[in-house]
């Protein structure tokens, strides 16, 4: 039997916590199948062995926060046929994009003994602000199920199943009772994209918005309804300013509550 040439996969890290690329190692049961079907050509968290590009699939984790990052992402793009950004950092700038709302020089002078050693950009930005991205996987961290689905979809040439509707749809498909209605806000579910299988609501917690804004998110309607229930501006600001703070709909909404 003819030995098929396996597609080459590379994993790249930019500014991030490594949690999303860990999801690949976290595949456990499926990991051997992945290794059997895909040649892991560059994945430093798993192996020292690095094969030369070009790569059929690149998974890019992290945001662009340094001048070096901003150059390196172009090299990654050039070496990749299909580039998938993984996680809130890569798709929206991540939690480190909180700096985008302040003066980064001030942080640097407060935190580091020798600020002149630090070379950093004023803003933490998503990969798609710098290069063309073929597919985005949301989440903080990403969903293992969605990652396997996307890899599987690429292998057979089908469409991935990553819905862009609200977390509410997943709650309802699982029969989870809406906490917003049954015990009160906050829950970011109605404006957040599905993908986590309603993880927090299934533990009676409101959604934190890890998967970022859903398609056509009406954040101002939800925020003004909550304000009517007595929620304060700083609370509304914090709700929209977390892992996906720099995703435009959440950014605009948090800015609307800035005093």
């Amino acid at each position: 039997m003819k030995k098929e040439k396996k597609p080459k996969l590379a994993v790249w890290k930019f500014s991030s916590c490594d949690g999303c690329q860990l999801s690949l190692l976290d595949c456990e049961d499926e990991l051997l199948t992945i290794a059997d079907r895909i040649e892991i050509a560059n994945f430093r968290e798993a192996s020292r062995q690095v094969l030369r590009g070009p790569y059929d699939i690149s998974l890019v984790e992290g945001s662009i926060t340094t001048p070096h990052d901003a150059e390196r992402i172009h090299q990654v793009r050039r070496a990749s046929k299909f580039l998938v950004t993984i996680g809130a950092c890569a798709t929206a700038g991540g939690i480190q994009a909180l700096r985008n709302f302040k003066d980064v020089k001030e942080f640097v002078s407060l935190v580091y003994a020798t600020p002149s050693y630090i070379e950093t950009l004023n803003k933490s930005t998503p990969i798609a602000d710098h290069v063309f991205v073929d597919f985005e996987l949301r989440g903080c961290p990403i969903s293992k199920t969605q990652l396997i689905d996307v890899l599987g979809a690429l292998l057979v040439g089908r469409k991935p199943t990553t819905p862009t509707y609200s977390v509410c749809v997943e709650c309802k498909q699982r029969g989870i009772v809406c906490g917003l209605v049954a015990f009160g806000p906050p829950c970011m579910g109605p404006v957040t994209q599905a993908g986590c299988n309603a993880l927090c609501p299934s533990y009676h917690r409101g959604c934190y918005g890890c998967f970022g804004p859903k398609e056509t998110p009406n954040t101002s309607a939800l925020a003004s309804y909550w304000r009517g229930l007595g929620m304060k501006n700083d609370e509304l600001l914090r709700l929209h300013r977390s892992y996906n703070a720099y995703a435009e709909p959440f950014r605009k909404e948090s800015e609307a509550h800035e005093k």
Partner: peptide, 13 residues
């Protein structure tokens, strides 16, 4: 439309 979240809860319940 200014109030609706298009979250789909109404149709699901």
């Amino acid at each position: 439309a200014k109030r609706c979240l298009t979250c789909a809860n109404c149709t699901m319940v």
